[in-house]
Every structure is written in C-alpha cells, then in structure tokens.
Amino acid sequence: MAGVAASGRQRSRIAPYLMILPALAYLAIFFVIPFWSLFRTSLSTSGGSVYLPTLTFAWDFGNYAEAFTTYQEQIVRSLGYALTATVVCLLISYPLAYVIAFKSGRFKSLLLGLVILPFFVTFLIRTLAWKTILADDGVVVSALGSIGLLPDEGRLLSTSWAVIGGLIYNWVIFMILPLYVSLEKIDARLLEASRDLYSSSFRAFRKVILPLSMPGVIAGSMLVFIPAVGDFINADYLGSTQTTMIGNVIQKQFLVVKDYPAAAALSFMLMALILAGVLSYTKALGTEDLV
C-alpha cells in the first residue's frame, strides 16, 4: 500500500509538467527557435546578390548601431504615433466602457455587439475603407473644408493624422474590451457606500472606480501600444514617405532590399524598446490585479 501511495504521489507531481509539455513544445518551435534564428541573423554579415543573398554569422554588433543611426527618425515616429493612438484610445474607450458597464441596462449585449461588429471585417479592408473616407474628394474633407477646419486644397490623407486615426480605429476595440471587463467586475455597492459617506461623483470615480479599473487600463494600453508600434499597414495605405513607421522599414528591408541583418537588428531594437516601455509602465501603475 505504501508503494502504491508513493507511486500515486509521484504521478501527481509529474502530471502538471506533462500537461504543459504541448505548450512548451509550441513555444519552442514557434517562438524560441525563430527568436534565436533572428538573433543570429542580426549579428551576421550579408553577401551575395539581391536575388541570392548569403549570410555569415560574425558577431557583428555594428548592425545595431548602423540600423539605429540610419532609422532613428522612423523609430521615434513609430513610438510617438503609437503613444498618441494609445492615449486617444483610452480617452475614447473609458467613457464608452463605463456607460456599457454601468448605464446600459438591458441594452448591454446590444452595445457590446455594436462595438465588436466592425471588427468582423478584415484589418486590410477596414484600412482601405478609412482611405476612401479620408480621400481628397471624400465627404469628410469636404465637410471640414466647408466649416473652415481645413484650408483650401487641404487634405487628411497622406498625413500623420490619417495614420494615427487609422491606428486608433483599428486597435480601439483592444482598449474597450479590457476596460469593460474591469469595470463590469466592480461591485455597485461600493459606489453606494461612497455616496453614503457623502462622496461626490468625481471623488467616487477617483477613489473607487479608477483604481479598481487599472488592470483594464494597463491591459488595454499594452494591447493597443504594442501592435501599433510595429504596424505598417496604416502607414502604407494612409500615409506618405514622410510618415513612414519602423514597421514599413523592417518590411522593406526583409522583402525588397533583402538586407536581413539590418532588418533583424531593427526588429530586436524594436522589441527591446517595447519591452522597456511596458516594464516601466506596468511598474509605475502596478500589476498585482492583472492575474
């Protein structure tokens, strides 16, 4: 009996590790191996021709310095666009998520469905639709021009505002949903208690609702900022050569120029910058309630 019990305890200790083996295998095949390959590429030297490039691993850290020096403007622009889009998404999404969570009543499911509905259309089609909306002969430009918000011959397409607008439109849902989940979990009795203690609505929001919704703010901000930094579709279709983002540069280096070391070095620098920003952001706001 003692041997059976010992065998059962041993199996129970091994079982959790066996259960995560598929996930570990998935990560090893689709993340660790490609990550290592990209790292080696970033430290290699390229040779051959454009049509048949060759790579030689040489611990060439100069690829990083050269890539950063050459494309510093695009890196800064991408971070600025993504940060602006994240802040605007937060300002738009918080009131909407608040209304759906606390004020929508029996229309809650309908409002959530309306929020999600546009995202049944593929990312590329939504961006092309945005391009049509902001076209020089479109309704938006005509309306803004008629009320004096755009000068004569003014335009929205191929500007930084168009790119940022596309980022906001395409990623705003990833801010709305985490915020809604965090707000919906807040016990309404806490707000009643704050009113019983003669708290104003603003003070109740600042002391009760906002702190309890911070997990949604943090999660939504990361879900918007991280993909927005590396986005290249919006800058490609809605921008110009003056609004090129680092994602466009990486895409061109990989697929057109075929300078794989430079593209890999840029990819690693972008990952490092995003990681540093995310860690600083989560440390400043706290992450205890995210799990």
Rank of each mutant, 00 (worst) to 15 (best):
Y81C: 01
L177Y: 09
E73H: 15
S201Q: 15
R195V: 11
L112H: 02
V88T: 04
T84E: 00
R195W: 12
G105V: 05
F119Q: 07
S146E: 12
V88Q: 00
I186E: 01
L79T: 12
L110I: 04
F107H: 12
Q72W: 14
T84C: 05
E153K: 15
R195C: 06
A85Y: 04
L149G: 08
A135L: 08
D152I: 12
T86W: 10
A143D: 09
E153P: 05
T86R: 09
V141Q: 02
G165Q: 10
L179R: 00
L112P: 06
S109R: 12
D187N: 07
E153C: 08
F120C: 13
A162H: 06
V99N: 10
L177P: 04
L183H: 04
I125C: 13
V163L: 08
R77E: 10
I100H: 02
D137Q: 13
G80R: 09
R206A: 02
I75D: 01
G148K: 05
T122Q: 14
G148H: 00
A97E: 00
S158Q: 14
L110K: 10
L150A: 10
V140P: 07
W130K: 06
I133W: 01
V121P: 11
L114F: 08
D152E: 15
R189M: 05
I168F: 04
S104G: 05
K185V: 11
G80A: 13
V99Q: 09
L177K: 09
T159S: 13
T70W: 15
I176V: 06
A85D: 12
V140E: 03
T86Y: 05
S104P: 02
P95S: 02
L79H: 07
W130R: 06
A97H: 04
G113W: 12
D137C: 03
S142H: 09
S158A: 13
S146G: 09
S104Q: 05
L111C: 05
Y180L: 06
T84A: 08
S182W: 05
I147S: 07
L91I: 09
P95W: 08
L112T: 03
V87I: 14
V141G: 00
I186F: 11
W171V: 11
D196L: 09
K108R: 12
C89T: 03
G148W: 00
R203L: 11
I173R: 15
V99P: 10
V140T: 09
R106F: 01
I92Q: 08
V99D: 03
G113Y: 12
I92V: 14
L117W: 13
R206W: 04
R77C: 14
S194L: 09
A101V: 14
L167T: 03
L179E: 05
S182D: 05
I173G: 15
R206K: 11
I133T: 05
G113N: 04
T84N: 00
L167H: 02
N170G: 10
S199K: 15
L79W: 00
L197Q: 00
L124R: 01
L111G: 03
L197C: 03
L111E: 01
I133G: 07
L110Y: 15
Y98M: 02
A143F: 12
Y71G: 01
I173C: 15
V140G: 07
G80Y: 07
Y180M: 07
